[in-house]
Design a protein around this nucleic acid. Sequence first.
DNA 1: GATATTTTATGCTGAAAAACATAACAAGCC
DNA 2: GGCTTGTTATGTTTTTCAGCATAAAATATC
Lengths: 232, 232
Amino acid sequence: MQKNFDCDKCFDAPEAIFSLLKPEQKEFVRERHSCVFYKKNDVIFKEEDEPIGLLVLCDGKVKVFREGVGRREQIVRMVKPYGLMGFRALFAEENHIATAVALEDAIVCIIDKDDLMKLIRENSDFAIGLMRSLATDLGFSNRRTVALTQKHIRGRLAESILFLKDTYGLEDDESTIKIFLSREDIANLSNMTTSNAIRTLSTFASEGVISITGRKIKITDMKKLERISSLG
Amino acid sequence: MQKNFDCDKCFDAPEAIFSLLKPEQKEFVRERHSCVFYKKNDVIFKEEDEPIGLLVLCDGKVKVFREGVGRREQIVRMVKPYGLMGFRALFAEENHIATAVALEDAIVCIIDKDDLMKLIRENSDFAIGLMRSLATDLGFSNRRTVALTQKHIRGRLAESILFLKDTYGLEDDESTIKIFLSREDIANLSNMTTSNAIRTLSTFASEGVISITGRKIKITDMKKLERISSLG
DNA sequence: GATATTTTATGCTGAAAAACATAACAAGCC
DNA sequence: GGCTTGTTATGTTTTTCAGCATAAAATATC
């Protein structure tokens, strides 16, 4: 865990939450923030930890999961660059209820709790931006609850593949998903056992819906994949 | 749907969100709000509706559910007096993704979208209060996702019973849950079929964990119920 | 580059829960 | 009261999926 990496992108990118800050607030954040580098597989925060502030993912990919029955993990969120982490617990005034792990090397920009509250109090647009983020996540979580409980294995897996595509996008070939997950992570995202993730992925491949090369997933029949997902 | 009922409680109760408003803001809300009465089984808002503002439940009980595969409904939230509804979609800038139905006669206090935004911009404590509500709901939803997907039927039903107890409380006898749901609603809350809800409830009764009289559920062995819930 | 470890692949078995069927019972309505 | 409609109850069948076992392949470690 090294300090003071470059996270200029987080201040400049229009999708980033800091774009809502006033110039003098940006300066304040530049001075006060810290920037932390995490290696692949590093834990960023874990269940029961006390929230320290707002974390902005500058670079990399992160999974956020919760451990359930028999320590089995269920991924509740996937974070992409400029995504926010760790502040839900802060506002709910409780400790973290999930664990965040870097899926590849990541740079995270951290704003301390008190500084964050100061920014919110000074700038209602910034506050509304954070509310928007919470509201979007809540919508996602509610949709997910229903999909994971009601859809059958094939539907759940198809939905997860589409979700990964929507979140991380596609390579230049316009079909390869820009994230490489282990079969176990795919299973933990889709609420199934690893065996079933492997089995169902190869069924999809044999049906010509996707093609697999190692951890690389290529969507070869989007229409069919969407049909499988929506039919459940 | 009649207008102008009494919803003074929403302004006076310390648990209500309006307690965070400044005196002149309270006056503003008193003037501008509308108060609507819903009969049992009335739809308050439904999936795909455009959000109109912030809804505060002054009196009654409400279920919020989402329709999934084959129109099967999954209850994502239960609202009790002073609970908030309908503003998640507003902040996420999308239409409602769930339907709210009154489980018994209800009084709802409505603040228009623009008025709400004005209050938020003027008062950061109020904004933070709303953030807290979103953050708490998101935590609940994430916990729920994992519980509903990983626990077995008995665990899910036990958890739902405990959840209903925590949300609506107990009668004076300190064991009867203060809400009466149909078996179908209990099933939709616990992610199971109505048959299984009925079957498992009577198993619990025969095991002495609960006792049932019609729709009235009495918890007779709290420890055991908690054990069933946590073991999954 | 040889060995250990993890990940992926696939078959088989049994448990869990959904689906279906039927009936008793209660409630609202003419 | 008698009728319809909705809810609750319980038994039977079928489907889905988890659990387990084993092996091959890929990756990491020394």
